[in-house]
Amino acid sequence: MNYVFDGSYQGFLCCVFECFEMKEWHAVPVAEGLFQPDIFLPERTIFTDVDKAQRIQNGLKSKFGKLIVDDIYRAFLSEDPVAWQAAYYIMVRLFQGQTDVLENFGDTQVLYFHQTLKKVSRERHRMKAFIRFSKSNDGLYYAIIEPDFNVLPLILSFFRNRYADMPWIIYDVKRKYGFYYDTVAVSEIEIDTTEQKNLQSSSLTIALDERDELFKRLWKQYFKSTNIEARRNIKLHVQHVPKRYWKYLVEKQR
């Protein structure tokens, strides 16, 4: 049995609800967009019901603790269908009473789940490191990102705590949403395509702070000067800063 859900996290949790309600232990959740109908497998569309999702979430939290809830959510943000199935498998086992399922690293699904968490966590860490703010002439700091996984929700509290006294926007162009912090609260924003273009080519509608170019230049200078030529090791450099991130790294531009 395939459960076809709408691709949202709530929808994903509703699949677990359905599984227990229908006692269909071999069901597999698949997201709508990714779903390829299989003539040999029956399918059912699972409607997203916030209440049901909430019940699953609360159940996980009260029975197995907040850490597990966080981990399931993180695995979900990987946007990897195989990891989703592993996360789903783990939730079902947990609710069936196998409370220590997560420690069984010999189980392929469990191992995959942990490996996914590691990947998501690495990407989250990279975003904390690789985000570069530009400053506009009205004092807004903004940054564009294109992370491998949907990690933006996972880095918000970090940026809110650290950059508490300045307004900022972090925008994920791949997933077309972002967050705006006005020095009091964070709110989600969506930008239409023309505005998004302007953000990327910078300086078109967003006028930069007059000293922004200067600090970009100084940072590039610093990056060059702090390098030790006699120790040159480009392989290691690229391993730490993979090329796909260069687009938004000031120091890697021209």
């Binding site: 904390k128 300045m166 030529e229 040159r232 090791n233 391993q239 730490h240």
Partner: peptide, 26 residues
Amino acid sequence: RKNTGGIGDASSSGICHTYTEDGRCV
């Protein structure tokens, strides 16, 4: 170190914001 009403805090595990071409953490 926590942000006490100003800017900034310390990340207890540290963060490398970039790496030089010799592969060292910046």
